[in-house]
């Protein structure tokens, strides 16, 4: 396991803990998006580029859009 993978997994673990612990919900959603992007790079390192594209487009794109829309609907952030 190279140093690059160690850094990626460290960022993922820190992000997973931080997205639960952070008080502001919008920050939590953005940290979750960073976690998802790191997960996409890890899939690419594990020789699964198909999974990486799906994770990057669904996990970092559409899921974040839906979370932000839900926050706007609950009036937790300004329009």
């Amino acid at each position: 396991m190279t140093l690059f993978n160690v850094i990626l997994i460290a960022i993922m673990i820190i992000g997973a803990i931080a997205s639960v612990m952070v008080k502001n919900i919008l920050s939590s959603v953005i940290i979750f998006m960073v976690y998802s992007l790191m997960m996409a790079i890890v899939w690419q390192q594990l020789n699964a580029p198909d999974m990486a594209i799906t994770e990057a487009s669904v996990g970092a794109g559409v899921t974040t859009i839906l979370f932000v829309l839900a926050l706007r609907k609950m009036r937790m952030i300004k329009k």
Partner: peptide, 24 residues
């Protein structure tokens, strides 16, 4: 990504989600 799903990474679901986020 949709059209070259059979010879390169990707496919209908991944390309469709990219197109869908562009329309959103």
């Amino acid at each position: 990504v949709i059209l070259f799903g059979h010879i390169s990474p990707g496919g209908g679901f991944a390309g469709g989600s990219i197109l869908g986020s562009s329309i959103i």
